[in-house]
Computed example of a mutant assay.
Amino acid sequence: MPQMAPLSWLNLFIFFIMIFMLFNVMNYFSLIYKNNNIKKDTKKSIITWKW
Rank of each mutant, 00 (worst) to 15 (best):
M18C: 14
F23N: 05
M21I: 06
L12P: 00
N11L: 11
W9V: 06
F23H: 08
Y28L: 15
N35V: 01
V25Q: 14
L10Y: 12
N11K: 07
I14V: 15
P2L: 06
S30K: 04
N24K: 11
N24P: 01
L10S: 14
W9Y: 10
F15H: 11
I32S: 12
I17P: 01
N35L: 00
N27L: 07
N24S: 13
L12A: 12
I14A: 13
W9K: 05
K34V: 07
Y33T: 02
S8R: 05
N36K: 04
P2N: 07
M26I: 09
Y33Q: 04
S30T: 08
F13D: 15
I19C: 06
I17Q: 13
Y28H: 10
A5E: 12
A5M: 03
L22G: 11
A5L: 06
F16S: 08
N36W: 02
M26H: 03
S30I: 02
Y28R: 12
S8K: 06
I17N: 08
F23G: 03
F16L: 12
M26L: 13
F15R: 07
F20L: 14
S30C: 07
M4K: 00
W9E: 12
F13A: 15
K34H: 00
Q3S: 06
F29Y: 15
F15E: 13
L7H: 09
P6Y: 02
P2I: 08
L12S: 10
K34N: 02
I17S: 10
M18R: 09
M18N: 10
L22V: 09
F15K: 09
M18S: 14
W9Q: 08
M4E: 10
M18H: 04
I17K: 03
N27T: 05
M26Q: 06
Y33P: 00
F29D: 06
N27R: 10
W9M: 08
N27P: 01
I17A: 14
K34F: 02
L10E: 15
L12W: 02
F15S: 14
I14N: 13
N35P: 01
S30P: 01
N24L: 14
I19T: 03
Y28C: 04
F15T: 09
